[in-house]
């Protein structure tokens, strides 16, 4: 299944690169040529303002991935760093950290993103920031739990006694165990981010026209689906396939027993 996911991703990336190489301007409007059918000039036709759908979808995929990647990278870095540091430091720091993550995980992330995005109205970046601020807790929890387990192992204790610096020990022993879990969480996280951002765009938060973004494109196209159903297909398909691929990549077969996996899609 994983291979399938990777294959889908590769197809999407190929599609995006090919379309962008053609060089059609995703912003150019042709008000007299709206909802045109696919042609050699407009591979997937034009939208409600006469813009080339293929070019917009390609650019939109890039933007959606960018926002999602930014939120995942941010939360991943922050969470893992805090989680490992907390586990290493132990004691009071760790309990405070645990209480904080407990706290944050109890709060719905979408609502917080709505709140921040709705109040700051600066496009998608406030949403990304708020997603980082809620998602880091997961990574923190996970990396702390694993770090704890690894730290209890004898060779780590030995390393400490021998006086190796903690950064070296962390890098050598803890990181490898964490990487797989981080990858899983990150994939799910990207999927979740893309879906959150698009839901918020649907209700009108976080838009910066005319910058294309897959979720915004879908909600912009929805008013027209009764008579022009095709224009909603490219962004929906791209977004769904990409999220699908991410989930496939992140999925485990039941061969690996996962005590750490938090099946957290929504």
């Amino acid at each position: 299944m994983r291979a399938f996911g990777v294959a889908i991703c590769a197809c999407i990336i190929a599609f995006v690169l090919i379309i962008m190489a053609r060089g059609t301007n995703p912003y150019a409007q042709d008000l007299m040529n709206t909802f045109a059918l696919p042609s050699s000039e407009h591979l997937l036709g034009t939208d409600y303002l006469g813009r080339d759908i293929a070019a917009r979808a390609a650019r939109g995929t890039l933007n959606s991935v960018l926002y999602a990647a930014a939120s995942v990278l941010g939360s991943m870095t922050l969470g893992t760093f805090l989680g490992i540091s907390g586990a290493w430091a132990g004691g009071r720091t760790e309990s405070v950290l645990l209480a904080t993550t407990d706290f944050i995980m109890a709060f719905p992330g979408l609502l917080f993103a709505l709140f921040v995005g709705g109040l700051f109205k600066l496009g998608a970046w406030p949403i990304v920031m708020s997603l980082i601020l809620t998602a880091w807790a997961e990574y923190c929890r996970m990396s702390r739990a694993i770090a704890r387990i690894v730290m209890a192992r004898p060779y780590v204790e030995a390393g400490v006694i021998c006086g190796y610096p903690s950064s070296f020990l962390i890098r050598k022993y803890i990181f490898p165990e964490i990487v797989a879990q981080i990858a899983t969480l990150a994939s799910f996280g990207m999927a979740k981010s893309i879906l959150y951002i698009s839901s918020l765009n649907f209700v009108g938060i976080g838009l910066t026209p005319p910058v294309p973004e897959l979720g915004a494109m879908i909600s912009e196209s929805l008013p027209y689906i009764r008579r022009h159903p095709f224009i909603v297909v490219p962004p929906s398909a791209l977004m769904s396939l990409f999220v699908f691929a991410l989930i496939l990549i992140a999925s485990k077969t039941e061969k690996r027993s996962d005590k750490f996996e938090s099946e957290r899609l929504f």
């Binding site: 303002l49 838009l207 910066t208 912009e220």
Partner: peptide, 25 residues
């Protein structure tokens, strides 16, 4: 709901003449 769409059209039309317009919603 038609306003942001009209704004995008105006933005592009002005861009064709070299005027840089950004839209805030």
């Amino acid at each position: 709901p038609d306003l942001p769409v009209v704004a995008q059209a105006i933005q592009q039309q002005l861009a064709n003449l070299g005027i840089k317009v950004s839209i805030a919603i």
